[in-house]
């Protein structure tokens, strides 16, 4: 299955620069958000929205889902 990606902030470095954070990703059927993050190589704290709703790492993805990934807003400043 294939999902549409939008990586925000510094996370867009995980895709080619020319893509500016936009792209698609092929996943095995039944893949969850955690699988997607692993496949992308995401190592920092993130917030994932699937079709504009925030979802946990265990959330099962569907073909055609629109995934947005944001850097988690953590600390004193960021």
């Amino acid at each position: 299955m294939r999902v549409e990606l939008r990586l925000h902030g510094g996370l867009r470095e995980l895709l080619p620069a020319a893509a500016r954070g936009r792209g698609e990703l092929e996943l095995v059927p039944g893949a969850a958000v955690a699988d997607l993050l692993a496949q992308l190589g995401v190592q920092r704290k993130v917030v994932v929205a699937c079709n504009d709703a925030e979802v946990p790492a265990t959330h099962a993805l569907q073909d055609g889902d629109k995934i947005a990934i944001f850097s988690a807003v953590s600390g004193g400043q960021i």
Binding site: V47, F70, A72
Partner: peptide, 21 residues
């Protein structure tokens, strides 16, 4: 590190995450 994005995009990097939250 977790400050890599801060270096490249500045503190402005968090606008997206703040909006989302």
């Amino acid at each position: 590190s977790d400050v890599a994005g801060l270096g490249k995009y500045g503190t402005a990097e968090v606008v997206s995450g703040q909006h989302r939250a």
